[in-house]
Amino acid sequence: MKLLKLVPDNTNIRFLRWRLPFYVVSVILIAASWAAVFANGLNMGVDFVGGQMIRATFTQDAEAPVPELRADIAKLGYGDPVIQRFGQPNEVSIRMRLPEAASDTAAKDLADQMTRSITAEMQKSHPGVRIDGVDSVSGKVSGELFQTGMLALGAAMLAISIYIWIRFEWQFGVGALFALVHDVSLTLGLFAVTQMEFDLNIVAAILAIIGYSLNDTIVVYDRIRENLKKFRKMPVDEILDLSVNETLSRTVMTSLLTLIVLVALMFVGPASTFGFATAIAFGIFVGTYSSIYMAAPILIWLRVTTNSFVPVEDPMDKQEKLIRGEG
């Protein structure tokens, strides 16, 4: 029985041959991504701008009719609702963005009017629905939540870089941090350009991207460290190419299988998971790219050599060995 191999054995692709052009393109994409974030902003979801949450139970249905409910509420003109099941299959939470108003009093009146319209439409279209509660989240609290989420992303990236610094060398920590900045920046740029809703689910997706990219980078770095010890006379760029090629089969297999599931979730799954699945799918693609073309080539410019992992012998120990005739 012949096994299917997506990547042939003994591949010898010279990835680092094009390291400079790819780095230039990547730096341009990072700058363009942040320019898009500052120019267009992110389309913040209810989690980050405040809003109303209505909890309801469909007592006459075994399962809440989410697609019909989403269409009924959307036609009221308050924007697209975020509807999620929770608890039992017939229980849902409906989150709506707060209406814009000149004052807090006017905003409260508009929010109350929106809630009455939505509950009336639900009771008209779905007799027997029970409204379990209505909660409001202020824009100030939501803004603090966004800041906390961004701080969590930054802290995660910094902690990961310190871990890699301790496990390998400081150059590897810098390379991993740059790769993570690349992945997160391009993902934020995607949401700034497309104006897909940016909520807590997307923050969770970015944290997942950081973890995935880190795992891929560490696999490559571990092989680089082994080969730096093994091939002391080989040029560093050739060692890096060899290491990437040796881990290529694992990288392609893992990324491809994960992308198949995510693409299916994007096009077949519910609308509420589209942004989450899109963010992770895009992040896996750029994370795989960055582990090859960002994390590895930067080691050359940071002057990693074949002696980087050779223990430095203490001069006193060396002198003692000479005295004993062991040197």
Rank of each mutant, 00 (worst) to 15 (best):
L200P: 05
D216A: 05
F282C: 03
Q171N: 11
E313H: 11
D237R: 03
G79R: 05
T247I: 02
L207K: 08
G189R: 00
T115S: 09
D222A: 08
I284F: 08
M44A: 14
P99Q: 13
D222P: 02
K124V: 08
Y221E: 06
T306Y: 08
F178Y: 13
E63F: 12
F86H: 14
S117T: 11
M253N: 10
L200M: 14
G325P: 09
F15V: 13
F309N: 01
L228G: 01
G275Y: 05
G325M: 15
R225V: 02
A107D: 15
T115G: 06
V312G: 05
V184E: 06
T59Q: 14
I162F: 12
G154S: 13
Q52F: 11
R324H: 15
E246Q: 01
L42A: 13
L177H: 09
F276V: 04
F276P: 00
A62F: 15
R324D: 15
N10K: 07
G149H: 00
V92A: 03
S255F: 05
G133K: 08
T194N: 14
S255L: 05
L228S: 03
P127C: 06
T278S: 15
L158C: 10
G51C: 05
G269T: 06
E169S: 10
F198W: 04
T187M: 07
A120M: 09
D237E: 13
E63W: 10
P311D: 06
D109L: 11
E226N: 12
F172A: 00
M44L: 15
V220H: 03
L177I: 11
F285V: 10
N227V: 04
S136Y: 11
V203C: 01
G275S: 09
M316Y: 12
Y221C: 04
N90H: 03
T288S: 01
E238P: 01
Y212C: 03
P8M: 14
A192G: 07
I284N: 02
L3Q: 14
A205Q: 04
D72M: 02
K140M: 14
L262A: 04
D222H: 06
S308V: 12
L240K: 03
A159R: 13
S308M: 14
N12P: 09
V27W: 08
F38P: 02
A64K: 00
V27S: 07
V181A: 09
D109C: 09
G175L: 01
V66P: 01
N227L: 06
I166R: 09
T119D: 10
I284R: 01
A156M: 07
M294E: 14
S125R: 13
L20E: 15
G175K: 00
V46S: 00
